[in-house]
Each structure stands twice: as structure tokens, then as C-alpha cells.
Design a protein around this nucleic acid. Structure first.
Lengths: 343, 343
DNA sequence: CTGTTAGCGCATTCAC
DNA sequence: GTGAATGCGCTAACAG
């Protein structure tokens, strides 16, 4: 239509240069006129280049949070089946900083085209990203981000808002004047980025802003020595009798739901985060009232998709991204699909 | 790999016959060995056949429920850009059964390849589907379905469960012993399928099952004469002083939120259905506590996608489908994207 | 700076 | 029954 060859059009579409101004304007006019939109799937057909993408997260356990992130990444790869990307998975032990360091060193030595990072150790991760920046390798955060870093983009939920929401929910369903228990899993030195901290801040801010005076108790639950928890909880509930509700800022609420189930405790409202297998059980059985989901699959999916589109099509990237906060109850969990993707 | 030509493979893939048993087995073996999966997007490239698809719903108003359904359908079409489907949109006035009948007659006379139906008038729709069945034209329901009909499939939310959920939510946030108001928009003879009825049933069942004795008042709100509502509501709230919360089984809760805003009523909890513009405003401003979303875009998207895959690829169809029930609050609405699709 | 051509995976057509 | 040829939209490689 513009009187030029397909080769020229392609050069214009991809800014490859070597095009005269006259040809460019002529083609661009036609492009606009016919409202041209490239077909990404077919374009992949003739693309030759191969890409190496690294994904690094804590070790993946079945039915847990990180598995969903990985699953989303794989789904994105399926959608772009025509694009040759080689996925290198490097997971580390989230309770062992040395494991993380080792894995990160390995990653820094790979000449990857892009890296997707689900982080636990903040300082370690800063060291890695610094190296990546030097080599000009783009990286994307999932689950949480780090201030003062320069990722290509990140996909997380708004953890502060999550805590704020949890405060709103728990205070609206507990008996007036009853106590609230806030549980954090403080794992020394390993605090998963600052998700829990942010949630806690959101939670407290809600209480202050709404002038809520209920007593807030804290328990520090340990993921390291689960065998001790039972005795420990028994002790706690023996001393506290005015508890109306509890919130878990990490994904371990299911443990408490399980304790409630075994001890027939039904008068304490419970709100948790993440759709882990045990959380979902607790929700289904009625021991957990609300679960907040943060779309881990979607995070992984978007991270991979964005990376591909950036690498292959130079598509501009929006840096700051928040996924949904899903509120689930036992009435809605059956219809909740974690396998949802975005075009 | 099987020592045959691509033509033969294609014949096997699509069961076109004219293939020797030996060739078939040889090819099928290879297919399994390489785990062959056809690439649907590229297959569309060379497909010649064109399809006519009809979509019929109540008239589309901006920012309202049906617009989202249409939008989802359009998005599915974008995803299958290589497949030539001609979309024929036929909307009717949901308050006028004659308009519906006219439109349906028109549709019955079209030789469509498939029809997507968002229904309001149950009996009228039954007449239409009967005709479609005679002509062996597949049809799909969105929003709601009809018992004893034979759609190819339907995509709706579980309206009964929705009502059940609303009962759970409202009773858990209102002061103990306060009254609950239940609002239905009874539009004579036009009850949008039976969504409201199902929700009401779910609502009542929850109350009975959980032995909840709060007084439940009813108001019948009219969409036809909106100018009368203000006086009417003023009258209602003057007489009732123990109202703790209200639930709307249709999407018009925003009207009440608006009334609350203008009259500074803040002590009544409100739960509504659908993310219409006015509902979302009410939620943002704090007059609505929860909105239940039923993924209209997703419904439209899935309906169109399923129809295409059925028509073009003869893909088997799951008849019974329920989309998610999303629970939204003012904390989560900002991150809620209605533009989410499923692969 | 520009045009030509081959080929990606797939479905169709036609000749054998 | 079968295979060869063509073309869909797009990119890459190369010749001019």
C-alpha cells in the first residue's frame, strides 16, 4: 500500500534504521490508516534468536506459595510457545543465607538475557542486582520489591494495603471490645523481604486512623520448631480469654486453624494470607474466616510475559505494578481459580 | 518422521478419512512420541472458513454489567484474530418483552454458526432456544441459565451461593440483633431470569441454617420510576430505626449508597452485587461495605472462546461452568482488574 | 537505503 | 490413498 517492500516495513516496525524519511512517513501513514497490529504469535514463528531466562526463588514446595509463581511462569512460556526461551531454575533454601549466596553467585556468572527474582534475603539480593546492573541484565521482582533498586519492573501485591484490609476485616467481625492477636513468624535474619513488616504497618495504621482501641496482643510463631507449637499455643490460650480474632501476616495461618480444629475452638475469628493447602483447608472447614490471596500465579505469569515482550519486542514496560488482593471465604473458594491470566 | 507427507498427517489430525490404517498408526505413534500439540494461533492462519456468531443481551449501557460481557467477547475475538468470525450484535430492551420477541425472531431467521445469549425473559428465551435446537445451532448462556434447556455450555456465577455469601457477610458485620433489609427490584414480568430469586433463596437458607433470628425487612425498589425513590426511602428510614445492614440482590445498590451520601447516613452496612459505576463509587466512598463481583468480562470471554474452539477445533465442551464470586472492598477495588482472561 | 527470498507451522487444493 | 505445492503474516539474510 505504501509502495515499498515488506523488508522496509519490517525495518520501520522494529526501528532497525536504514530507512529514508520519505519511506518511513509513507509507511507510518498506512500503518495508522489500517490500524495495524502485529500478530505476536506469528511473529514468533520467524524469530530466530534464543533467550536464556533465569528464575530464582526459595525452594518450591508442593501446594505452597512459590509453586504458584513458578506455575504462572510456565504458563506464560506456553503462551509464547514459538519463542525460544530456555528457562534456568535456581532455587535456594530460604532459611539458609549461604545457600542463597551460592545460588546468586552462580546466577551472576550466567550470561542470562533476563532474571526473575523472588527474594527472601534483602541484602544478598542487593548484591546480586548490582552485579546484574553492571552486566546490563534486566531483572524483575515478584512477591516483593526492594526500595532503591532498579528492576525492569516488579509484580507484587500491595502488602501495606493488605495489612490495612486485614485490620478492617478482623475489626468488623469480632465482638466489640475483644482482643486481637497478631502473629508474625520472626525467623531471625531471614525476614522474607519486608512483606510482613509492611502488612503490620498497614494493620496498625488502620487501627490508629479509625481510633480502634481493642487490645492487640502479639505472638511470635516459629516455623523452625513446629513440634513446640502445640504446647506453646495451649499455654497462650489458657492465659488469654478475651481473644476475639487473630491475624496472620505470613502464610502459616493454617497451622493455627489446625490447632483450632483439634481443640474444637470455634469462637475466635481468623484471617490469613495466601492460599496454601493448609490455609485452604482451614478456610473450608470454617476455622479461617477470610484468606487474602495475592495472585502468585498471575505474578509469575506477568513477570515472564513482560520479560519476553521486553526482550523480543522492546515493548515499553510499566515499572510499578500491583496485583489484586483477593478476599476468599469458604463460600467462594470453590470457584476460585488460581489459573487466570491476563492478555 | 513417520515417512508420510504433511497432507496425510493433516488428514489424520482432523479425521478426514482417506488414510490407510498403517499410515494412521505410524503417524499416531510419532504424534505421541513428540507429544504433538497443534498451535491454535497458527492453525488459524490458514483456516479458510468464516463463522457468523450472534450475541444477544439487554441493551448495553456504559459502565454497566452488560457492557463488560460484550467487552469480554471482543477480547476473545482479539485473541483469535486469525479466525474469521463475524459478530452480529442484537440487543433488546430488557423492560419490553416485545422488543425481546422481535429481536429473537430476527435471530432465529439468521443462519448463524453459534449464538451467545444473555437472557432476561425466560419464556421468550425458551422459544428461541427451541428454534435454535431445531436448526442445530449451538447456543451458550451467559449471566444465567435455564433449567431443562440444552445449551452448548453456560458461564454464570452461582447466584444461590452469592446470596448465601451475602447473608454470611452482612450478619457478621452488623450489630447483634439489628434488623436486615433485603431489597429486590421487582420489575413486573421481567425478572432478570431468576438470578435475584436464587440469591434470595441462598440468603434465606443461610439464615435458617445458622439459626439467625434478626428481623428481615423487605423493600421493593423500582427501577422504572427513579424520581420517586428519594421520598420513598426517606419515608422508609423514618419508620425503621433498628436497621443494621442492607443487601441488594440486583446491581442497583449504588442508588442507596448515593442516598446515604446525600443524607449522611453512615451507620448502616451495605452489600451489593456487580461492579457498576455507581456501585463502585459507593464502595470507594465508604457507603457500600462489600461488593460481590461476578466476572462479567470473563463470562463473555469464556463464552466466545469456548464457542470458537468448539466450532473450529471441535474441542469438547464442559457444560456446567461457574465463574468466581469476587469480594471487593474499598481497600481492594483499586487493584481489581476486570480485564483478566483465562488461557 | 531498498527489494527479494526463504521459511517458520499449519490447512487446503489438486494431481496422481 | 497419498504427496507436492501454495499461502497465511512475519522476520532474517542477503543481494543490490
Amino acid at each position: 500500500m505504501a509502495g515499498v517492500s515488506p523488508g522496509t516495513v519490517d525495518r520501520i516496525l522494529h526501528n532497525r534504521g536504514n530507512v529514508s524519511e520519505s519511506a518511513r512517513t509513507a509507511v507510518e501513514e498506512v500503518l495508522k490508516k489500517v490500524n495495524y497490529k502485529p500478530n505476536i504469535h506469528i511473529s514468533g514463528l520467524s524469530l530466530k534468536r534464543k533467550y536464556k531466562v533465569v528464575i530464582t526463588t526459595p525452594t518450591v514446595t508442593e501446594g505452597e506459595y512459590w509453586e504458584s509463581i513458578h506455575s504462572g511462569i510456565l504458563h506464560a512460556l506456553e503462551e509464547y510457545e514459538n519463542i525460544r526461551v530456555k528457562l534456568l531454575v535456581h532455587t535456594y533454601n530460604e532459611f539458609d543465607i549461604n545457600s542463597c549466596r551460592e545460588v546468586y553467585d552462580k546466577i551472576a556468572s550466567i550470561n542470562a538475557d533476563g532474571v526473575i527474582i523472588g527474594l527472601t534475603f534483602k541484602e544478598e539480593t542487593k548484591r546480586l542486582t548490582k552485579k546484574l546492573e553492571e552486566k546490563e541484565i534486566p531483572y524483575i521482582f515478584v512477591d516483593s520489591t526492594i526500595e532503591n533498586s532498579s528492576p525492569l519492573t516488579f509484580f507484587t501485591s500491595d502488602h501495606y494495603r493488605c495489612g490495612y484490609l486485614m485490620a478492617r476485616l478482623i475489626t468488623s467481625i469480632i465482638p466489640k471490645g475483644s482482643d486481637i492477636v497478631m502473629s508474625e513468624a520472626v525467623r531471625i535474619g531471614t525476614q522474607r523481604a519486608n512483606t510482613s513488616t509492611l502488612r503490620k504497618k498497614g494493620f496498625n495504621d488502620y487501627l490508629v486512623e479509625h481510633n480502634i482501641k481493642n487490645t492487640v496482643l502479639k505472638i511470635s510463631y516459629t516455623a523452625m520448631e513446629p513440634e513446640k507449637n502445640d504446647a506453646w499455643m495451649a499455654d497462650f490460650f489458657q492465659k488469654q480469654h478475651n481473644i476475639g480474632g487473630m491475624v496472620f501476616f505470613n502464610s502459616r495461618g493454617g497451622v493455627l486453624a489446625d490447632y483450632f480444629a483439634r481443640n474444637s475452638i470455634t469462637n475466635i475469628r481468623l484471617i490469613g494470607v495466601d492460599l496454601t493447602a493448609s490455609n485452604v483447608n482451614g478456610l473450608r472447614d470454617g476455622y479461617i474466616d477470610f484468606l487474602i490471596g495475592q495472585e502468585p500465579e498471575h505474578q509469575g505469569f506477568l513477570a515472564m510475559k513482560t520479560l519476553i515482550e521486553y526482550l523480543v519486542y522492546k515493548k515499553p514496560v510499566k515499572v510499578h505494578n500491583h496485583v489484586q488482593l483477593d478476599i476468599l471465604t469458604r463460600e467462594t473458594i470453590d470457584y476460585y481459580s488460581q489459573f487466570i491470566y491476563m492478555s
